[in-house]
Amino acid sequence: MNRRDFLKIAGVGMVSTIFEPVLPYEIKPSKKRLALLIDITKPFDIKACLDACNKAHNIPEIEDPKHKIKWIWPERFSDVFSEQIDMPKEITIPVLCNHCENPPCVRVCPTKATFKRKDGIVMMDYHRCIGCRFCMAACPYGARSFNWIDPKPFIKGSNPKFPTRTKGVVEKCNFCAERLDKRESPACVEPSNGSLIFGYLSEMKDLISNRYCLRRKPDLGTSPSVYYLI
């Protein structure tokens, strides 16, 4: 290596170390991407799934609908897929953060308090969030909640293994990242009686291609990781 090459490489190296932390959210598609399939044809106890999540994540039970915190909650099928098909019978399905491949919330966050991991999970750093709520405006699914008031007095049966949040930060479903670390499946999946299937997308390809699948608002290009099997 001559001196010129050395300087070139050193220069590029220096520039990349300066810019690396500033680089935008991950653009490359993740190879190992986690996904959740929800089989809405099999009846299951939605409430049990919701309760499991609320308990695991210290989600406050706030009565006022304006201040509610929701990670996973029930909605009417016709509201969730209003632009797609009519179901013969009205059913209720769970909705949650879609952990998009191309998440608008991550794109707009001015502090990188919300970010996408390599496995596709869109996470929140509650200690970095400044509470500007740009992500709530950006999320096309209404999956994000803001702590309008101090949530702690509203938490029933707290789980000491998961942090509580303060007022003034945004929060949402984290695909149970803390449980995945311990090789446990997400809290909502356990009581679902097999209706909720969680795993790597690549390993569930057969399930998806053999059934008719819907994802919420696919035309927006966000590419959700939550699939509804109908």
Partner: peptide, 15 residues
């Protein structure tokens, strides 16, 4: 801002 004391995070973590 929900957490006004953290507003400098916009500069600390430029995005």
């Amino acid at each position: 801002l929900g957490q006004p004391a953290r507003f400098l995070n916009i500069i600390l973590y430029p995005s």
